[in-house]
Design a protein around this nucleic acid. Structure first.
Lengths: 231, 231
DNA sequence: TGCAATAGTGTAGAAAATACACCTTATATT
DNA sequence: AATATAAGGTGTATTTTCTACACTATTGCA
């Protein structure tokens, strides 16, 4: 079929938006850049994609090299190609996002010399980031705001055992609005996707709340038709 | 800030999925390729993006050159980067999609030598297409199946004046399921986004149906919270 | 004139969404 | 031991939305 066609390769980068949830706030994982362009700026973990790796593989590799994190399932968000987004020329980037259980066991250990450190930043309080990374993060938030209505992504962000209040706070953080406690609980328990545990919260100086787990068998079914909390 | 960094440019293509609706069926616009690779195959309008045009501009240009169509608002769908998708090397493509009123006035007039002709194909009856274009179309359909629940995209696909039955058939075509006529009408009229006209269908050999127009003022509000038809 | 084909219409019951306030429990403080 | 603090946990009545379901009306044409 071919007719002496030249061999060509796409040159482009991939960026990772990793979100976490802690203390009632959404966090995003940023790295401190140690190389030009945007040396000393904070930005998303991102780099050029190799010629012989899929984009899906590339984001995993990049995330590992820049943070030490492994085994995170990432989904494609959007491809950004503004003419001015990269100082070295028009270089497009394919952005991916993922959500992560932010427990204390997670150690951030960058191995690449391209970054100096990695840190969780509150989404509400971001500095000016490298490239168009502020915009990429904004677009991720729009996406998960819609997605959390019909996908059980909440459970990716919470610890394995969580309280109903934590679950509600997560929805409130993502949607940036308050929900009614009684209605929220009624509705959530009605979906029948939570397992009530014989365990309670520890280390709080007030009445401890029951802990729940996510019932994996039931979630897929329940979330197929979408859920919503208007108030 | 920069430090003698080399100039680099991304090489990649953009593809256009243009959907239309006619005779109760979803159609997709394909072009017959006149150049390698995939000469003589049908495929999506698509080509390399220039160095100094945004991706959004590129898809408009490509669509015009390949079909003669102009002024269509396209949205980004997904970026495809499988290692084997392009015979000339790993070339990624950014796919865009749009929906179009398929009236008879639309003339397809390709000006590029890269294509021989352009034609509407029924989505149900596609041949094996160039590259990974079958997969790109499949992904577009998944997308609009979800999107039509919370966005008034139906109106982009219908003629300016349409009957409620046509509107229902569109939903049925996209979701591939039958809906209840009375419930559909009740719900649609309840959204209060349609203007009833003093006009009826013409040229049908049965009772003519009332024509409606889309009330642009009201649609945005109504569709914010999503709509759905389970049956 | 009657046949074919589609347009157009209503209601009752079930399910889901909403608004709303107080008592309970665990811990810390005096 | 008593009290204060802070969050946990719970129910009901009302409104709204969803669902199931079948017949009559209108038009063009043979």
């Amino acid at each position: 079929m071919q007719n002496n066609l030249p061999h060509i390769q796409s040159i482009f980068t991939a960026d990772c938006v990793i979100l976490g949830f802690k203390e009632g706030e959404l966090k995003v994982l940023l790295v401190e850049r140690n190389e030009f362009p945007f040396k000393d700026f904070w930005g998303l973990p991102g780099f050029f994609v190799d010629q012989n790796e899929t984009i899906d593989d590339a984001v995993k590799r990049i995330l590992f090299e820049y943070t030490g994190l492994k085994g995170i399932f990432m989904e494609q968000l959007y491809t950004f190609g503004d003419l001015q987004r990269h100082p070295q020329g028009r270089i497009i980037t394919v952005a991916y996002y993922a959500m992560l259980r932010l427990d204390d066991a997670i150690k951030l250990a960058p191995s690449s010399n391209y970054v100096r450190s990695a840190k969780w930043w509150s989404i509400k309080d971001l500095p000016e980031l490298a490239f168009d990374h502020n915009r990429i993060i904004a677009k991720t938030l729009e996406k998960i705001r819609r997605k959390i209505s019909h996908s059980p992504i909440a459970f990716e962000l919470l610890p394995e055992k969580f309280t109903l209040t934590q679950l509600q706070q997560l929805y409130e953080a993502i949607w940036e609005k308050k929900l009614d406690k009684r209605n929220f609980r009624k509705k959530m328990l009605n979906y029948d996707v939570l397992k009530e545990l014989d365990e309670k919260q520890k280390g709080v100086s007030y009445r401890a709340a029951k802990l729940y787990k996510f019932d994996k068998r039931k979630y897929a079914k329940a979330f197929q038709n979408g859920i919503n909390f208007s108030k």
